[in-house]
Amino acid sequence: MPPSFTGFTEKKMEDVALEIEYDHPKSRYLRTERLPHIWCPGCGIGIVLNSYLEAVGKSGIPAEDIVLVSGIGCTARLPGYSNIDSYHTIHGRGIAFATGMKVANPALRVSVISGDGDLFNIGGNHIMHAARRNVDMLVICVNNFNYGMTGGQHGATTPIGSRTASSPYGSTEDSFNLPYIMAALGASYVARWTVLHVRQLVQSITRGMKHRGFSFIEILSTCPPNFGKDNNFPSGFSEMEHYRQFCTVDNTANLREISIDFLAKKPIVLGEFVNERRKTYHEREEQVMKMAQGDQQ
């Protein structure tokens, strides 16, 4: 029932607030009793949660068919706030867990939503092989360029030169260029957006969910208290402003050249880089089953 403002004077303020909260368009997809969430002011993960739930509605896929899996970290808490079957597993292993789940029950629509550290540092081996196998799942990597939950240490996605809690002189390692890696590994849908580009993001998540095969979306996020404060982004707004100024959309970009370098003020290339159809793990497994069962008849 939509909130009614007509009897406003007769109602207590709290009642109206409750009614409005209850009728929030996303509340049916949220475990509202778990709110407020743990994310810091200025964090972009809430935008990702909102965008994902928006995409669930748009995709036409019944929420009951969806399973959310995550590893460990700030982003890995996202599934726990959604009122969708969710599995918060151990650090780095979300994709391997999701692989078992999808293979065991191919009818499930599996999404893995986790952070850059979880998916590409400790969990790098699993994302590599899930993409190669073309397991039919959507992987959303929220990239905040650091390990947020442990206090802002550098990792494989930290742009070179960035100061973090464990690179006080500036990171000396080259960082991963995620769309380039994922395309090379065989992911059949690859896109990159930021938490500023919400419209494109919702559309991309909707496509990724409906895409048959391994889909990967990198979402550049904000992390003011950990990454931002030492890297010229003291607030979520300032990092958003950087995205507004430096992002360009180019679906046909040469992926080799789209690494991220904040210090050099390099343009940040966004877009939907790969969208192709190849046989999924499940389709190939079905052939094996036919062979195995045919042999015995």
């Binding site: 597993t89 292993r93 391997a96 867990f97 692989t99 078992g100 999808k102 293979v103 069962q293 015995q296």
Partner: peptide
């Protein structure tokens, strides 16, 4: 595959146990 079950050779033992737990769930 003969009995309609699923076999997957994972990338390592860490992935193996994770996949087993996913399948069991």
């Amino acid at each position: 595959p003969e009995v309609g079950g699923h076999f997957i050779e994972m990338e390592d033992e860490i992935g193996s146990i994770a996949a087993v737990l996913g399948a069991s769930n």
